[in-house]
């Protein structure tokens, strides 16, 4: 007799698929609870970059609050690509949100004129922080809450400007890997061009995230999803990931824990805030 043979399949090596309908519904409820129930704020203000993360956030906010309660702010710098502006426009057109374009060039250059030697990284950070200055001021003006747009991949890799992109008090997509954000974007009806274009921080001409990171989002998400479960580097390699990719991701994650925390405060008393004096965020 010859027996049929079946085997354990090789690991899928991709970030877990998500149920996009359930995710969209859950995040819509989250936004209503955070803004309306908890804070009594009916409106959101979002920095709309022309990328998929802020587009998904805008779509979710429009679902949760209604499009006329969503202020989409475009904040281009002189070197921002025209495509980013037009892609942001496509989101506004698709949703019917309120919108405004506020150039940050003069404000950024107003400072950088005193720092002419600043390289691309510093200039990018100044732009990112200036956008938060604008967003929070618009928030005060419009009585609207800033809503964050950082995804889990960039948060885990530290691929963001600290106290800039991560600043808004509420973020619906921060626990979704980039590839999962793409899946959610397709479900929500985000314009196709935004979903398909190469993600970019758009701080320099021709910049792409994947070139900056040295790995594709598909591979990064697959490794991150298993690394976060507790797999060792050796196990990840045994499961089929390339050793250099595992090393790259591990190094980035380990080097950026601080970026996912509030500033470190010296503890001096037994009433130290968040050490002894502990209250939940919604208390």
């Amino acid at each position: 007799m010859t027996f049929l043979v079946v085997e354990t399949p090789k690991p899928a090596l991709q970030a877990p698929a998500i149920d996009v309908a359930v995710t969209a519904e859950w995040l819509t409820e989250f936004l209503r609870d955070e803004l309306i129930v908890r804070r009594g704020i009916e409106r959101a203000v979002i920095g709309l970059s022309g990328g998929v993360d802020s587009a998904v956030t805008a779509f979710l906010c429009a679902r949760a609050l209604g499009p006329k309660n969503v202020h989409a702010i475009r904040m281009p710098y002189a070197t921002s690509s025209p495509e980013s502006l037009s892609d942001a426009r496509a989101v506004v057109d698709a949703l019917g949100t309120l919108e405004r374009t506020i150039e940050i060039t003069a404000a950024v250059d107003g400072y950088l004129q005193y720092e002419p030697e600043a390289g691309p990284r510093r200039r990018g950070n100044v732009m990112a922080r200036m956008r938060m200055v604008v967003l929070f001021d618009q928030s005060a003006k419009l009585d609207a809450l800033p809503v964050g747009t950082g995804n889990k991949t960039e948060r885990m890799l530290g691929y963001f400007t600290w106290h800039a992109d991560d600043t808004p008090p509420v973020n619906p997509i921060g626990d979704l890997f980039k590839t999962q954000v793409w899946a959610l974007a397709r479900y929500l009806g985000v314009p196709q061009a935004l979903v398909e274009k190469a993600p970019s921080a758009d701080l320099e001409a021709g910049q792409t995230d994947e070139a900056d990171l040295g790995i594709t989002y598909a591979r990064a998400d697959a490794i991150l999803s298993e690394l976060l479960l507790g797999y060792s580097d050796q196990q990840l390699i045994e499961r089929g990931f390339a050793a250099q990719d595992v090393a790259l991701i591990r190094k980035r994650v380990d080097a950026t824990h601080w970026k996912r925390h509030l500033p470190t405060t010296a503890m001096l008393t037994n009433t130290a805030i968040n050490e002894f004096y502990l209250r939940p965020v919604d208390y």
Binding site: M1, F3, L4, V5, V6, E7, T8, P9
Partner: peptide
């Protein structure tokens, strides 16, 4: 991880 069909003599190889 892996499952045999119901009605056929089968070897299930499972690498755990």
């Amino acid at each position: 991880l892996v499952q045999a069909p119901p009605a056929e003599p089968t070897i299930v190889r499972a690498d755990l």
